[in-house]
Design a protein around this nucleic acid. Structure first.
Length: 673
DNA sequence: CACGTATATTTATAT
DNA sequence: AATATACGTG
């Protein structure tokens, strides 16, 4: 079974006696090692699958891993096997232990948008408001949570006024979250970790559930995630973590690649296996990647090698502007596809920021090329999706004031601002949620009769619907609900054109379809919890939806950010926008964090199996203004002999043009002398 | 409440 | 530059 693996990989799979760190270079088969190891544990070591846990960072990675495990061993022997993301794992722990955390069942999960809205709300009471400050406060709070600092600790460690303000907001924010019976994304890790630290019996219980732990992309763990792992494995220390410091690209959200070296200190018996043979890319691509990354300092010294052919030169194409750049990429892609009889999904177009997809999408649409944009938050940020999600959130957690406010008057129920203000005043005075307030007798004296009726009507309706959900098929009830509020009618009122309304309604049905499918899938796992709650919370974590999309025709050109591309591979890769200020991104240049941008470029390059095309533009429109763009410094760090330049010249900025002209001139003078 | 005009905001990266 | 939001008027 493990015969397809090379000796190093086999060593990584078969070593189960000591804690293990696998340093896996790009394309060295790290997912194979994890999946084969799961199979090995089940089949050779007779370890029950429900005692094995594998943790990844993205839903996509978790899904792929499940699929690959099911391909090597029969489905029935993987029963109970846990393969999930960190956040999903945290969510499951919180769901099981919610009583110990002061949460009621059906608690809400606030995504970053919800959190930001909450902080904004708080700040308006505290002091003046500026958007940049609010953003930085949200970021600061998130960092504190990742470092497991309580509001009290943050307050005592605060050194300047802005930190002091952030710490005060942090305290209020946390209190409000609890009042809403809600947790944020960071809480999904922080709450279980703190719980394990504080309550020995609960930790014991969970440690018994995990006989072996595997962690993917270990270099991406932050402090709280590392601690969670450490707590889960306990003194048994039966674990394998797989990572690559060269692919650490999440420092900005607290990832700490030092956790790789920390492991040696915390687990003296740690064994280290290095995987250096690359099975993915051509020799040329690998050589370029190696040379680029050699400009970075390393925690560990790895040298990737491969025994594949050397392959085509790496093309670098520079166009006059971003429009021409997009034209080139799309046309070039089409030409290759047709000439070589390739499939659309043999191609990927990668970029630094989501906004860069737009122009490419336009060109692809013009030529009716099927494509798929992954990542981005487009779907969930659509107002119709947010509306329906708010309804669902309110159904499972009536104390979710954010959801309440979003939908109480959407569609119109003649519940206006003044009514809500009075209701809000009443609710906050009594420390209860808005929904709870609607059912109190006390509001009868403060609301005019007509308004009171409307509020009561809404409140009763929500109660009835959530009751119905328990009795009948939730999907049918959701459909009924959408009809009862005449959401289709509301959409056509709100939209500019009938076709736009239709499209938005279509999005709503897609959401319902996903929920339906998910409820069916969840049923046979029968976790004993409310399946609707389960599905809604997973939806908020952006799980589910993508799954649906994957299933329909996936033969499409893949568009995604460099971050989203990690862990994937494609025969032919286009990496666009290879310019200073874009890659490396301006913010990183200003922070002096070029190394992470270099790793990001490294990740992009190492996605390519056969051909790699780097493209750039000489000018770019920014906020309506056209500005000159300088080729990325990373292009200079690639082996010149393996590059093939096309398009416009490779002059640098104007200054450099001048300086080369000067050099030329002085050279001429020297000759004349 | 619909419509027009003024003003703000957009371009990190993700669970 | 283009799009979203806010505000005011009829």
């Amino acid at each position: 079974m493990t015969s397809k693996l090379n000796p190093k990989q086999q060593q990584a799979v078969k070593n189960i006696s000591s804690p293990l760190l696998v340093l896996a270079g790009a394309g060295s088969g790290k997912t194979s090692v994890i999946t084969q190891k799961i199979a090995y544990l089940v089949e050779n070591c007779q370890m029950p699958a429900h005692k094995i846990m594998a943790v990844t960072f993205t839903n996509k990675a978790a899904r792929e891993m499940k699929e690959r495990v099911n391909n090597i061993i029969p489905r029935k022997s993987t029963r109970g096997l846990t393969i999930s993301t960190f956040h999903n794992l945290g969510l499951n722990i919180i769901r099981r232990e919610h009583r110990h955390l002061g949460l009621k069942p059906g608690f809400s999960i606030f995504d970053s948008q919800d959190s930001l809205a909450l902080i904004k709300d708080l700040m308006q009471r505290e002091s003046g408001d500026e958007n940049a400050i609010i953003d930085s406060i949200q970021h600061t709070i998130s960092n504190w949570k990742n470092d497991l600092l309580s509001p009290q600790q943050a307050l005592s460690y605060a050194t300047d006024d802005s930190e002091l303000l952030a710490a005060r907001v942090y305290a209020a924010y946390n209190r409000l979250l609890r009042a809403y019976n809600a947790v944020d994304f960071d809480d999904l890790i922080l709450l279980p970790t703190n719980l394990f630290l504080e309550q020995k019996e609960i930790l014991d219980k969970w440690q018994n559930k995990v006989h072996y732990l595997l962690v993917d992309e270990y270099q991406d763990t932050n402090h709280s995630q590392y601690l969670l792992i450490k707590l889960l494995v306990g003194v048994k220390a039966s674990f394998t973590v797989v990572g690559d410091d060269d692919q650490s690209i999440y420092a900005w959200r607290g990832a700490n690649p030092e956790n790789l070296t920390q492991l040696k200190t915390d687990f003296p018996k740690l064994e280290v296996v290095m995987l250096e043979q690359n099975y993915r890319s051509s020799g040329r691509i690998l050589k370029a990647a190696n040379q680029l990354i050699s400009n970075n300092p390393h925690l560990f010294d790895k040298t990737l090698w491969c025994d594949r052919g050397f392959g085509d030169p790496i093309r670098i194409v520079r166009q006059k502007n971003e429009d021409k750049e997009a034209d080139f990429v799309v046309h070039d892609l089409m030409t290759h596809k047709l000439q070589k009889g390739l499939a659309w999904n043999d191609f990927a177009i990668l970029y630094r920021g989501n906004f860069q997809s737009r122009i490419i999408e336009l060109k692809l649409q013009a030529l009716s090329v099927p494509y798929k944009v992954s990542g981005g938050t487009a779907f969930f940020s659509r107002s119709e999706i947010k509306d329906i999600m708010a309804y669902l959130r309110l159904l499972i957690n009536r104390d979710d004031d954010n959801a309440f406010l979003r939908i109480v008057n959407t569609p119109r129920r003649e519940i206006g601002i003044s009514t809500l203000e009075k209701l809000g005043e009443y609710a906050s005075g009594r420390q209860i949620s808005l929904f709870a307030a609607t059912q109190e007798l006390g509001i009868e004296s403060i609301l005019p009769k007509r308004n009171l009726e409307k509020v009561r009507e809404f409140s009763q309706w929500i109660t009835d619907i959530s009751q119905l959900c328990r009795e009948r098929s939730p999907t049918a009830v959701i459909k009924q609900m959408i009809q009862e509020i005449d959401y289709p009618g509301w959409l056509s009122d709100q939209s500019n054109s009938p076709s736009a309304a239709e499209k938005r309604l279509e999005n709503v049905w897609q959401l319902v379809k996903s929920i339906d499918k998910m409820l069916l899938d969840t049923d046979d796992l029968s976790s004993g919890e409310d399946p609707l709650e389960n599905v809604i919370s997973r939806l908020i974590l952006r799980d589910i939806m993508e799954q649906q999309e994957e299933e329909d025709d996936s033969n499409r050109v893949q568009l995604m950010t460099l971050h989203a591309s990690k862990g994937l591979e494609f025969p032919h890769v286009y990496l666009i926008g290879m310019e200073e200020e874009l890659l490396p991104h301006r913010a990183s240049i200003e922070e002096g964090n070029i190394e992470e941008e270099r790793r990001l470029t490294y990740v992009g390059i190492t996605r390519a199996q056969q051909t790699l095309t780097l493209s750039l533009s000489a000018s770019r429109k920014q906020y309506g203004q056209t500005i000159e763009a300088t080729p990325s410094r990373f292009l200079d760090e690639l082996p010149k002999e393996d590059l093939d330049w096309h398009g416009m010249g490779i002059e640098r900025s104007q200054e450099e043009k001048k300086s080369t002209a000067k050099a030329h001139l002085s050279g001429m003078r020297d000759l004349l002398r």
